[in-house]
Computed example of a mutant assay.
Amino acid sequence: MSAGIILPRIMQIGAGASDAIGDVLGRLNCSRPLIITDPMMVQLGYVDRLQQQLQAKALVADVFANTVPEPTVASIMAGVDQVQRGDYDCIIALGGGSPIDSAKAIAILGRHGGTMRDYKFPRQVDEPGLPLIAIPTTAGTGSEATRFTIITDEHNDEKMLCAGLGFMPVAALIDYSLTLSLPPRTTADTGIDALTHAMEAYVSRKANAYSDSQAMAAMRLLGPHLRRAYHDGADKQAREAMMLGSTLAGIAFSNASVALVHGMSRPIGAFFHVPHGLSNAMLLPSVTAHSIPAAPERYAECARLIGVAGPADDTATANDKLLAELTALNDELQVPTPAQFGIDRAHFMSVTEEMARQALDSGSPGNNPRIPTRDDIVALYRALW
């Protein structure tokens, strides 16, 4: 059985990769870019630096800096309005997963119109939007190399998964030096997000030989370096490994799909505004424990790849070590429980049925080695408390 593989047309990887933006636009025959970013990128001076690099190539870029964490329909439509008022031939997404996901949606809606819900999964959005060049500044989402975006419908607290070739950036400039300023909390949340991507791609029912190769490489990079990057943000070797691992994990899950952790994570983010990487981290140990019986050898290999089990460990021992490591990682990186995050218990328990419905509707739980029922998901949510 063959697998269809989708990648950005251009990938520039390594320190200083973002400096190539002018040359990349030239190769794509683009000359009127709109930069889509967030206020922090403006404050840190990254937007000014990018504009200076473009000016050196006689290119002028406008800026839309009003993206929000966990992007909403309203925040997307503000960007779409600017695109439709302008004369742009491409979009440059600068920032973490939220600006890049926002830019993906704006690139499609800006060209084709309609509402965000029109593009919700299970529709496959394969028509191209405005060409998108992604420059990630976090090592986590892998959004620079995926065919997905997730946008929250704030009217009904639903995170809508949107998928298809149209959401794949045409170019990705993967510059780990842009992550050196990340604070520990962001490093932790995005790093565990990347690890979740790699693990879920590897155990997914849609895994294939190509996605396996990317997921395995990602786990070998992420496992030994996540703690190092968290404790010492100036550790360039760790930052470089995390950035490459994040991109490889993004490629893996874009071509194999994520599974139950992500399916359950999105509703937590939508209802309680928990950052995506953090909600993944909350869920990863318990969902892994739930899923291991259906793919014990695969999970045991995850333990070996991230470096917590050795070749002499049998499957059961490796899986015990994997679960111990995921719990220890959350403890060391100070991942809170829903209660510690400040979520009201009664509210959380009252929406578990609806969160389970939204999780199943996203399609991701169907890729899990152990396919859950709605009751299974409700029980996992309640145990998470």
Results as ranks from 00 to 15, higher is better:
121 F>N: 15
111 R>A: 13
185 R>N: 06
159 K>N: 11
249 A>K: 12
71 P>R: 07
340 Q>P: 09
354 E>D: 10
328 A>W: 01
1 M>L: 05
83 V>K: 09
95 G>Q: 10
213 S>W: 00
291 S>P: 06
261 V>N: 06
356 A>N: 14
311 P>Y: 04
168 M>F: 08
323 L>G: 00
169 P>Q: 05
301 E>W: 01
102 S>A: 15
95 G>E: 08
329 L>E: 00
212 D>L: 07
184 P>I: 04
27 R>I: 11
329 L>Q: 10
347 H>L: 11
363 G>Q: 14
41 M>I: 06
275 P>A: 08
178 L>V: 00
256 A>V: 05
297 E>N: 04
333 L>W: 07
223 G>T: 03
201 A>P: 03
208 N>C: 12
252 A>N: 10
230 Y>G: 04
254 S>V: 02
264 M>Q: 09
35 I>F: 12
24 V>L: 05
92 I>M: 07
316 A>E: 15
276 H>G: 11
192 I>L: 14
31 S>K: 06
350 S>C: 07
127 E>V: 15
279 S>E: 10
385 W>N: 04
79 G>W: 00
252 A>Q: 11
113 G>R: 05
311 P>F: 02
75 S>F: 00
341 F>V: 00
163 A>T: 13
22 G>C: 11
267 P>E: 12
245 G>N: 03
210 Y>G: 00
52 Q>Y: 10
385 W>D: 05
193 D>Y: 01
51 Q>I: 11
5 I>V: 14
116 M>E: 07
246 S>M: 00
374 R>G: 07
26 G>V: 07
70 E>I: 01
44 L>E: 04
263 G>L: 12
369 P>Y: 04
258 V>M: 15
190 T>S: 14
380 L>F: 05
196 T>R: 01
190 T>D: 13
37 T>Y: 09
207 A>Y: 01
56 A>W: 08
211 S>Q: 04
70 E>C: 03
106 I>C: 04
186 T>L: 14
265 S>T: 02
231 H>M: 10
293 P>L: 07
312 A>N: 03
219 M>R: 01
274 V>G: 01
294 A>K: 05
383 A>F: 02
164 G>I: 13
200 E>T: 03
225 H>F: 12
49 R>Y: 10
269 G>W: 01
247 T>R: 00
34 L>E: 08
50 L>M: 15
238 A>Q: 00
234 A>L: 08
244 L>W: 13
33 P>R: 02
56 A>D: 08
227 R>W: 08
47 V>K: 09
346 A>H: 11
248 L>Y: 10
183 P>Y: 02
177 S>H: 15
178 L>C: 12
11 M>F: 01
92 I>V: 10
180 L>F: 04
347 H>Q: 13
55 Q>M: 13
184 P>E: 05
291 S>C: 13
225 H>P: 02
242 M>C: 05
45 G>V: 04
20 A>H: 10
126 D>K: 13
90 C>W: 03
254 S>D: 05
212 D>Y: 14
348 F>I: 06
270 A>S: 13
129 G>E: 14
377 I>R: 06
34 L>W: 03
289 A>W: 00
155 H>F: 06
127 E>C: 12
118 D>M: 01
311 P>L: 08
255 N>H: 05
236 K>C: 03
257 S>L: 13
251 I>H: 01
116 M>P: 03
186 T>E: 11
159 K>R: 09
141 T>K: 06
225 H>I: 03
145 A>D: 10
198 A>S: 13
219 M>F: 09
47 V>W: 02
229 A>T: 03
239 R>V: 09
